[in-house]
């Protein structure tokens, strides 16, 4: 359920929504963190639901001492009105039995909010690629028919690769089974995509094949890829990294070393 922050005008008419799928290596979530932190986006509301595991913390994007003590929750919506951009950040895993409910909640919110398009940032297990997926760059995209209608030219000029369909029974030649879309480790990505196809929602999925570990480089790859399309940061080339790493990314691998060790 979307709950707006007090005193915030909430109209998403014509906005582009970027949201992560909780997936392998949390790449989508990290990429969204970079967007919010770099564009200095403002929080406009919460998605308050029983589908996410509760967590709370102080401001993850704090820049000075004054804004450090600000409570943040598992799912929040940020906007940059001048860019007509909204972002939904999800900071907690979805409860196993509530995947479907969460998907339905997101789809109905997308429908009622009037976003002009939605982009899901996601990832998929690198080790489960088939032969054709191993070739070339590790980035793929998917678009629903209703977004394809309006963005076909733009996508064509980018030269991106669409996510391949894989055979239902690899290695079997004479089955009549249709090849299907498979996004292992992608969480709700596939479900959300197929729901949007059937609901005629303009939605795109950008995904990256990766493995668990230090996924910060993956997040940069994905967010730069998104930037090629949406031009959130207007740098013609990607020479220097202009994305701002939020302070909440510190100590990703635990505390410092105990001095008693030496």
């Amino acid at each position: 359920m979307f709950i707006p922050v007090e005193n915030s005008l909430c109209s998403f008419k014509g906005f582009t929504l970027v949201m992560p799928a909780v997936a392998v290596g949390n790449v989508g979530q990290l990429a969204v963190d970079l967007i919010v932190s770099t564009l200095n986006m403002k929080r406009v509301g919460y998605v308050h639901t029983d589908c996410l595991i509760p967590m709370a913390g102080n401001n993850p994007y704090t820049t000075c001492r004054d804004d450090a003590e600000e409570l943040h929750t598992p799912a929040e919506v940020y906007t940059a009105p001048e860019l007509k951009l909204a972002v939904l950040q999800i900071r907690a895993p979805i409860i196993q039995t509530k995947f479907k409910k969460f998907r339905q909640l997101i789809v109905s919110w997308l429908k009622s909010s009037g976003f002009s398009r939605t982009v899901i940032l996601s990832s998929s297990h690198a080790y489960q690629r088939d032969d054709q997926q191993l070739k070339g760059m590790p980035l793929r995209y998917l678009v629903t028919p209703s977004l394809l209608k309006v963005s076909e030219d733009a996508l064509k000029s980018l030269g991106w690769r669409e996510m391949e369909q894989v055979p239902a029974f690899p290695g079997m030649t004479d089955t009549n089974a249709e090849p299907r879309l498979c996004i292992p480790g992608g969480g709700i990505t596939k479900g959300l995509y197929s729901d949007s196809c059937s609901e005629d929602l303009p939605l795109a999925v950008l995904l990256l094949f990766c493995s668990e570990g230090d996924n910060i480089p993956d997040a940069f790859t994905l967010v730069n890829h998104l930037n090629d399309w949406l031009h959130l940061l207007d740098s013609p080339s990607q020479e220097a990294n202009k994305w701002k790493i939020p302070p909440s990314w510190s100590l990703l691998f635990g505390s410092g070393i105990p001095p008693a060790l030496f």
Partner: peptide, 15 residues
Amino acid sequence: EQPNIITGLPAAVLN
């Protein structure tokens, strides 16, 4: 301090 977070019942109440 960031990057510490709270989970469990206290987090649910805070949310």
